[in-house]
């Protein structure tokens, strides 16, 4: 056969079993004659094997009951998994009485550290800005859409500003605050009694997490949810049973808004 010029492309073809069999020997000669290419090939192969090894165990794990039962269900409507706030509530129950507070309970359940970090920043922002009587917000909400446009441009996300009037909370306005990984938006809401709730939103999220975070019982808490590219926390000093419906309402509106 006619020898042809090989390239890095052929290294990939060879590794992936796509190199024609009749070119195999010729390719191997080319590799031998080009030590750089041979080293590169060996490196790709080592990385590939490492990746396969890292994932091998997953395929050996017992199939979780919730998945196996779907197939055994005989076509019945499948069981829906718990909504995220139910998971958060379960975490709270487990954490009650734990010396370390919610944090220990959540960590023990495998909640992601990134969620806790975001929640902690959101709580810090809430504590800094919401007790103020003056200048609680940088830009007031006056219904003309400017607040949304401005916050979105600063954060780099098209934000949804939830309407919480159904829960008795009016949007006062918002501000941009510096966070570890970039700017975050803080929305502040207030009810007729003067209770304030804040919502913290950032684009700096690389993971998926949901949870409830608070340092101690009876202090400021955050209900948070993160997805890659979007992180949010609803923060308040309210008891959890009052906070949860508000967070759920906000979450629904954001999910709906983002899906449009």
């Amino acid at each position: 056969m006619t020898a042809r010029d090989y390239s890095v492309r052929d290294i990939h073809l060879s590794l992936d079993g796509e190199l024609p069999a009749d070119e195999r020997a010729d390719f191997d000669h080319w590799l031998d004659a080009n030590p750089d290419m041979k080293a590169l090939s060996a490196r790709y192969e080592a990385d590939r094997d490492r990746l396969a090894a890292a994932l091998a165990d997953v395929a050996e794990e017992a199939v979780p009951e919730r998945l196996a039962s779907l197939l055994a269900g005989g076509g019945q409507a499948s069981r829906r998994r718990a909504a995220w706030w139910q998971a958060a509530a379960a975490a709270l129950l487990l954490a009650v009485g734990a010396a370390g507070g919610y944090m220990a309970g959540l960590a023990g359940l495998g909640f992601d550290r990134a969620g806790e970090d975001l929640a902690a920043q959101a709580i810090a922002a809430h504590r800094t800005f919401t007790p103020a009587t003056d200048h609680v917000v940088e830009v007031a909400a006056n219904g003309d859409g400017y607040l949304k446009t401005w916050l979105s441009s600063q954060v780099g996300l098209t934000l949804v500003l939830p309407d919480l009037t159904g829960e008795g909370y009016e949007l006062l306005g918002g501000r941009i605050i510096p966070a570890e990984d970039g700017p975050a938006a803080l929305l502040v809401y207030q009810n007729s009694k003067g209770d304030r709730i804040s919502i913290y939103m950032t684009a700096a999220s690389t993971t998926k997490a949901r949870g409830l975070y608070g340092e101690h019982e009876g202090t400021t808490k955050a209900i948070y949810w993160l997805d890659p590219g979007y992180g949010c926390a609803v923060v308040s000093d309210l008891p959890e049973d009052q906070m949860r419906p508000v967070a759920r309402d906000a979450w629904r509106q954001m999910v709906d808004g983002l899906n449009l």
């Binding site: 780099g156 684009a203 590219g229």
Partner: peptide, 12 residues
């Protein structure tokens, strides 16, 4: 769904 929320998603 996530991408729609962001023009670009910068990951560090």
């Amino acid at each position: 769904k996530v991408k729609r929320t962001a023009e670009v998603i910068a990951f560090s």
